[in-house]
């Protein structure tokens, strides 16, 4: 009797391990339109409304948690903010001089931004799911193909570019964040708009991106903003991202002035607490 139980237990274990390995091999080997991917998409299609309902129902709990977290974080930031306040006070005087120039430039930037995004078919959605593992930097939003969302469309939040759509369902879309190891974004930085490619510096670090392939003599300094490059008239292919979407700010430069120069930037958006995002369903505008 005991031997039978042990044999049965081992047989089930072996069977399940074999199933896992077969699934893993088959999934890894097939293309995005394969049968297992299809099953996955179909199941997600069914579960999306449940997840959306669950996400809405549990939002008060998330908010409560967020409130506690914000309170603890705010206490830790008091000293830092006091120092920053003192520094800013001294800067105010200098800034008065620049104010006139700034007002004019800010108006221009604001105008450009408004004109650039108004005709991009912005669809506002709520994040209903975030990948539970740090190996996949993905979120799911409650806007899908029914709302005109397509694969490849850029996604922004109130601060900057956060990623692009990589999977679409009827009422939801999977967004791969720019901090995912599979993402590359053509970008510009510095006063001269130096070109480079932005990618994650390492897996699992949502606070550090790296801009590669910049010229050794590129004039990029710490504190410079990095934005999307977009498409230029002499480009053969059109970029997925419109020109000028903010990505992050340079905070460190490695191997400066060499061919292997790496410019590290912190994304403007906090990728771990995304809530409301916008999908640019017409990123090229005017079509």
């Amino acid at each position: 009797m005991y031997d039978k139980t042990v044999r049965r237990r081992r047989a089930v274990l072996g069977l399940l391990v074999a199933c896992s390995l077969i699934l893993l091999t088959a999934y890894f080997g097939e293309t995005g339109s394969g049968a297992l991917h299809g099953v996955q998409r179909g199941t997600s299609e069914i579960l999306n409304p449940i997840q959306e309902g669950g996400s809405r129902a549990l939002k008060p709990i998330r908010d409560l948690f967020g409130w506690f977290g914000d309170t603890v974080a705010a206490k830790g930031q008091v000293e830092e903010l006091r120092r920053e306040r003192d520094r800013l006070r001294s800067e105010v005087m200098a800034n008065e001089v620049r104010k006139a120039d700034y007002t004019r430039l800010a108006a221009m930037v604001e105008l450009d931004g408004a004109l650039g995004l108004e005709d991009k078919g912005l669809k506002t959605g709520r994040v209903i799911f975030q990948s539970p593992t740090v190996w996949y930097a993905t979120v799911r939003v409650d806007k899908g193909s029914d709302d005109g969302v397509r694969i490849g469309q850029p996604v922004i939040n109130e601060e900057s570019l956060i990623g692009r759509v990589t999977e679409v369902f009827g009422g939801a879309a999977q967004v791969t964040l720019i901090t995912d190891t599979t993402m590359r974004v053509p970008a510009r930085a510095g006063r001269r708009g130096e070109f480079g490619i932005v990618e994650p510096s390492s897996a699992g670090n949502p606070n550090d991106l790296v801009m590669k392939f910049t010229k050794p003599d590129a004039r990029i300094r710490t504190g410079d903003r990095v934005v999307t490059r977009g498409t230029e008239p002499d480009d053969r292919l059109q970029s997925l991202y419109p020109v000028g979407l903010p990505i992050g700010r340079v905070w460190r430069i490695e191997n400066e002035g060499t061919d292997t120069q790496e410019i590290h930037l912190r994304p403007f958006a906090d990728m771990r607490s995304l809530d409301v995002v916008q999908i640019l369903t017409n990123p090229r505008g005017g079509e």
């Binding site: 399940l16 699934l23 999934y27 297992l36 990948s131 996949y136």
Partner: peptide, 30 residues
């Protein structure tokens, strides 16, 4: 027996829902 089977099922479901590589979570949770 139940623990292993439950781990396999939960892992598979999590992989399906998260659109991750099928079989990874199920193998580990098994």
């Amino acid at each position: 027996l139940a623990g292993g089977s439950f781990g396999f099922g939960v892992g598979l479901f999590a992989d399906v829902v998260s659109l991750q590589t099928l079989g990874v979570s199920s193998l580990v949770l098994l």
